[in-house]
Structure formats: structure tokens, C-alpha cells
């Protein structure tokens, strides 16, 4: 196990190094991205431009620039934005983190609980109108663009029906820190949570139903019945437990991608200045240090989530465990 973890960590570093080089190179071949020109301002003379270039080390060979950037990002930790002078990159990300996490954790709890309920109900009532209705709703959930759902939710809760008893409690857009005002935090996030969760509820509900239906065709379910177990136990301990492998790996990957910035659309619509928002702005400004930091941060979560999924996979399925050992 220790060896596996170590190898995983090595793989992770390798992937991250690759991504950082790629991002760096793409940045330098992008036209109009010359940071010196941006820093020096619109009407700078060639002399000023050259001075800025020299000051910031833009006249050095590209690999030196890369190493310098990496050093300031990972070792000294004092990398600053090219666009907003003096804005330290790492603290900005750390500030944005709790917002993204708050959004994600609530949504994840919601989508896991609701999709398990939907998946199990649909599988148990297979072929009935309940099953069909749930699956159609799931499909609708999957096919509605998050951005659009968010805008509609805002339209309803912030303007159209904001003055009715139903939505008058919804606060104005923006984030309220949990430590300052837990109830405010909750109120501010309920609508974003639901918006983000809808897609995944539809997706996971459908996936779970399919794997439960498949599990119920298995011989071991017949054995479980032959043993005289209760239907409830068969469902939870046998059918659901064996379906969990798919469910959990899917969850791990989606969660990783979302922490890594996949929440952007929801953050944007609801004015939550999370990591997705930060990344979005950095790309808009072609702000290399910020982009680099955000991408590195995201890759940690995506690659990390992959590793966690692999480990969970081995814990959940003994067949995987032994083939590794």
C-alpha cells in the first residue's frame, strides 16, 4: 500500500510538471500575450518596454523564465500577478478556496443523497410510471445547461418572485463566510447548491438505477434470496454495495474536476468569487502567474481525485485489491 501511494505521488508530480510546461508554452505562443507590453502600458516607448522586460526577466531564455516562475510559485511563494500589480497569487487562491468548497460540499451532499434516493426508487419500481417519470426528470436534469438553470433561478428568486413569501428569504448574490454568519452562509448558497446539483442528480440517479437493475440480474442476488435474507438487506448489502463501485469512482472524478474549477459557471452566475471565477478572470486578462497557479491547483485536485478513486476502488472491490498485490 505504501508503495502504491508513493508511486501515485510520483505520477502526480510528473503530470503536474507536464501540465505546467504546457500552460507556460501555450502562453508564450499566444499572440498579444507579451507581459512586458501590458505592464508598461499602452503608449510605452521601446526604451521603457526594454527596461520593463529586463526588470521582470522577460529577456532571459524561456526555460530560465519557466524555472523562475516555478520557483516563485512553489518555493518562495511570492509570485505576483502581472495584471493587478502587487496582488499575490497564492493568497488569492487560498481566499477563493473556502467559497468553492462551500459551494461544492453542499451540492455534493445534495446530489449524492437525492440521486441515491432516485436511483433506488426507480430500480425498485422498475417499469412503473414512477420509474419512467424519474428517469425522464433525470434526463431533463442532465440536459439543462447549468448556466441557464442558474440564470433562471436568479430571475425567479432575485427579481420576479423575490417579493413573494416564497423567495423573500433569498439574500442578494454573493458569498457570506460560514464563520461570520452560518445561517447567512446557508441562505446564500441554497440556490447555487441546487443549481449545481441538478445535473449530477440526473446523471447519478440514472447511472445508479442502471447498475442496480444490472445487479439484480446477478446470480448472487438469487443466492441472497435463497439464503432467506430480507429484501431490504439484499438491496443494501448486496445490490447497492456492488453498485457502489461505479458510483463512487464517478463521484471522485467529478468532485476532483469541480474543485479544480469546474464550478466556474455556477460561481459566475451567482457572483461567488471562488477558484473558478479567479481562473476565469486570469484567462480573460492573460495573467500568466494567476493562470499558472490556478491550473497547478486544479491539477492537484484532478490528479489527487484520481488517486483517491483508485484507492477507494481497491477498498470497495476485493478483486481489484488482489490483482494489485
Amino acid at each position: 500500500m505504501g508503495f502504491i501511494l508513493l508511486r501515485r505521488l510520483g505520477e502526480m508530480l510528473f503530470v503536474m510538471a507536464g501540465i505546467s510546461v504546457l500552460v507556460f508554452l501555450i502562453f508564450f505562443v499566444t499572440p498579444g500575450a507579451d507581459p512586458a507590453a501590458r505592464i508598461a502600458g499602452r503608449n510605452a516607448s521601446p526604451e521603457v518596454l526594454a527596461a520593463v522586460r529586463h526588470d521582470f526577466g522577460f529577456d532571459q531564455p524561456i526555460w530560465v523564465q519557466y524555472l523562475l516562475l516555478m520557483k516563485r510559485l512553489f518555493i518562495t511563494g511570492d509570485l505576483t500577478s502581472f495584471v493587478n500589480r502587487g496582488q499575490k497569487v497564492i493568497p488569492s487562491i487560498l481566499e477563493a478556496l473556502p467559497i468553492t468548497f462551500s459551494l461544492l460540499l453542499g451540492a455534493a451532499v445534495l446530489w449524492v443523497v437525492v440521486s441515491i434516493l432516485i436511483g433506488v426508487t426507480a430500480a425498485m419500481m422498475r417499469g412503473t410510471w414512477v420509474d419512467k417519470t424519474l428517469m425522464v426528470l433525470g434526463l431533463i436534469g442532465v440536459s439543462m445547461p447549468v448556466f441557464w438553470v442558474g440564470e433562471v433561478a436568479n430571475l425567479i428568486t432575485q427579481s420576479r418572485y423575490h417579493d413573494t413569501w416564497l423567495f423573500s428569504w433569498v439574500p442578494a448574490l454573493g458569498y457570506v463566510p460560514l464563520t461570520q454568519d452560518p445561517w447567512g452562509w446557508f441562505k446564500a448558497l441554497v440556490v447555487p447548491w441546487i443549481t449545481l446539483a441538478i445535473l449530477y442528480i440526473g446523471l447519478y440517479g440514472r447511472v445508479l438505477r442502471a447498475s442496480l437493475v444490472e445487479a439484480y440480474q446477478e446470480d448472487f442476488i438469487r443466492t441472497a434470496r435463497a439464503k432467506g435474507l430480507s429484501e431490504r438487506r439484499i438491496l443494501i448489502r448486496h445490490a447497492l454495495r456492488t453498485s457502489l463501485v461505479t458510483f463512487v469512482s464517478l463521484f471522485g472524478l467529478d468532485f476532483g474536476a469541480l474543485v479544480g474549477g469546474g464550478t466556474l459557471l455556477v460561481e459566475y452566475v451567482f457572483g461567488l468569487q471562488g477558484v473558478g471565477f479567479l481562473t476565469f478572470n486570469a484567462f480573460g486578462n492573460l495573467d500568466l502567474p494567476m493562470i499558472m497557479a490556478a491550473v497547478m491547483y486544479a491539477s492537484v485536485f484532478v490528479v489527487g481525485a484520481n488517486a483517491v478513486v483508485d484507492i477507494l476502488y481497491a477498498t470497495l472491490d476485493p478483486r481489484v485489491r488482489t490483482s494489485r498485490a
Partner: peptide, 17 residues
């Protein structure tokens, strides 16, 4: 308890996990 049954393929007849 009173009547028990065993099946043809013991691999698929047992819960793998």
C-alpha cells in the same frame, strides 16, 4: 433455514465483495 439451495456456478452465485 428449512430449504436451502445451491447453484451451478459458485463464482457468480456468491457476492464478490
Amino acid at each position: 433455514n428449512e430449504i436451502a439451495m445451491i447453484f451451478q456456478d459458485p463464482m457468480s452465485a456468491m457476492t464478490p465483495v
